[in-house]
Design a protein around this nucleic acid. Structure first.
Length: 492
RNA sequence: GGCCCCAUAGUCUAGUGGUUAGGACUCCGCUCUUUCAAGGCGGCAGCACGGGUUCGAGUCCCGUUGGGGCCA
């Protein structure tokens, strides 16, 4: 296929939905697989609410996932401008042409009249579509309406008979009856085009070869195909992607909670994991491997392997996959990604020295096996960065409130204080030495120690964990816990 | 309400007329270890239903049901 061109055409609503990003990913993958171009176009004809910030949010989401565009508002391109509100003259030109040819007409019906018409249809049990009252107004009637200052919108004169066949690359052949279609508005009274018109004109003007979009637009394609015929445009190929659903199986939307792309970034997802996860939603590489690199995905991606059925966004599995990427990543790399999260929580200084970064990489290496998200480091592994961490329920119950725990912790603090070589090996020797001295199993020292120093009963190897903490901090934590829980014990 | 789409375990999926229906997440069990929220091993669980077509149907056709989307 020569010169494949796809586009991502979001509305600047001020936030970017994970479902939109999924669509963008597939459009991008198809273009990259074929060595074609991926175009970014901002569709802001609906409202006058296009703000620079809203467009920035879109850039941010695409960049986070690593989807680069070849043409767009910021980078320009041969078919600029790429913001619809700046293309109004182009739409007016085509609108005038349809009007001239009688393929579109002015409609003077007021919103109230339209509502009445719809009501009347509904009352008769018919679908509420525009009946075509203004279809055949004479020049005199039109002049009279204009004279009284009635604003007119422009409607597309759709065929009253026949069928429109969509040959969709994913959904197959879908047939719509033209008789069931009302005449859609294509030009608003404000002079702006509607979504349907702008899309058709832009996809033609920008030489889009493959319109890949979410399945919610499948029904709209009938209008688009008909408009292309009326305008004499060739039709692009269509591929309607299955929708992404929430846990309740309805279209993923704001009310499902965190759905904006940056919410996931904030939650500590790695973009490469999200890329992989999203790619596997509605597309399958065929084999049984699921962890695939970006290059492999690009190379193996085809529309034929896309499913037609919608899929539920499973956050649990996304977290698992993210964990897999964490495990495979170097401590240095994780440390680099981690920094902003830690700094935001006030757990790490700005502009850290190289040795601090190296220390963070060691922490990352120790923790990454059991960290599904980057934010795991600011929650579960908080104790690496501050003395201010909570003792969880299990830690209190199983170890800290045991009668002999304060003594054990103090004894351990004393031994560790005297330790000259602060290494995992020496620490282990001291811990085991104390257990022997007390005549208990090593676990009887290890567990209370972990509970006191980390506040939890779980985590990485205790000795390696302690090694990464400062000697005086560990001693302080041991004594602090000993004091606190000695007081809590009933005196006898 | 009308039109359209979809249907393999709770979830993501493989499967293109003949398979003990495969993999992954989740969950459960066992195991290793100083702990598990980590590792290893194992397990539960699925072709929505009813008719056809066919020697044979998860796979093709029709209907039903269920879910979803669009239209206003």
């Amino acid at each position: 296929m020569p010169d494949i061109r796809t586009r991502f055409a979001p509305s600047p609503t001020g936030y970017m939905h994970i479902g939109n990003l999924h669509t963008a990913l597939f459009e991008w993958l198809f273009a990259r697989h074929h060595g074609g171009q991926f175009v970014l176009r901002i569709e802001d004809t609906d409202e006058a609410r296009h703000t620079p910030e809203a467009v920035t949010v879109i850039y941010e989401g695409l960049r986070w996932l690593g989807l680069d565009w070849d043409e767009g508002p910021d980078v320009g391109g041969p078919y600029a401008p790429y913001i619809q509100s700046e293309r109004v003259d182009i739409y007016r030109h085509y609108l005038a042409r349809l009007l001239e040819q009688g393929l579109a007409y002015e409609c003077f019906c007021t919103p109230e009249e339209l509502e009445q018409q719809r009501e009347a249809l509904r009352a008769r049990g018919l679908p509420p579509r525009y009946e075509g009252r203004c279809r055949r107004l004479s020049e005199r009637e039109k002049a009279a309406l204009r004279a009284v200052g009635r604003p007119a919108c422009i409607r597309f004169r759709t065929p009253e008979t026949g069928q429109t066949v969509i040959r969709d690359l994913i959904q197959g052949e879908v047939v719509y009856d033209n008789a069931l279609l009302g005449d859609p508005v294509i030009g608003k009274t404000s002079g702006f085009p509607t979504y349907h018109f702008a899309v058709v004109v832009d996809d033609f003007e920008m030489r889009i070869t493959h319109v890949i979009r979410a399945a919610e637009h499948l029904g709209n394609t009938q209008i688009h195909l008909l408009l292309q015929q009326a305008l004499g445009f060739p039709s692009p190929q269509y591929a309607h992607l299955p929708l992404i659903l929430g846990e309740d199986r309805s279209k993923l939307s704001k009310r499902h909670g965190a759905v904006s792309v940056m919410d996931y970034a904030e939650r500590g997802f790695l973009p490469e994991a999200m890329f992989n996860f999203l790619a596997l939603l509605g597309w399958s590489p065929g084999g049984t491997e699921e962890i695939l690199s970006r290059e492999e995905i690009i190379q193996r991606f085809t529309l034929e392997a896309c499913s037609a059925s919608p899929s539920v966004f499973d956050l649990t599995k996304a977290e698992w996959m993210n964990g897999e990427y964490m495990k495979a990543m170097s401590g240095e790399e994780i440390a680099r990604r981690l920094l902003p999260y830690l700094q935001k929580q006030g757990l790490f200084e700005g502009n850290p020295a190289p040795e601090r970064l190296a220390w963070l990489a060691r922490v990352a290496d120790l923790m990454k096996e059991r960290a599904p998200l980057l934010t795991t480091f600011t929650t579960w592994a908080r104790y690496f960065f501050t003395d201010d961490y909570p003792y969880d329920e299990k830690a209190r119950k199983r170890w800290l409130t045991k009668p002999d725990t304060p003594q054990t912790l103090r004894a351990l603090a004393d031994r560790l204080e005297a330790l000259g070589d602060w290494s995992a090996q020496s620490i282990e020797a001291e811990v085991r030495g104390l257990a022997e001295e007390l005549g208990v199993s090593a676990g009887q020292v290890i567990h209370p120690c972990r509970a006191a120093v980390t506040g939890t009963t779980v985590g990485p190897s205790l000795f390696h964990l302690l090694e990464l903490l400062a000697q005086q901090d560990v001693i302080h934590r041991l004594r602090r816990a000993a004091d606190q829980f000695a007081e809590d014990l009933p005196a006898d």
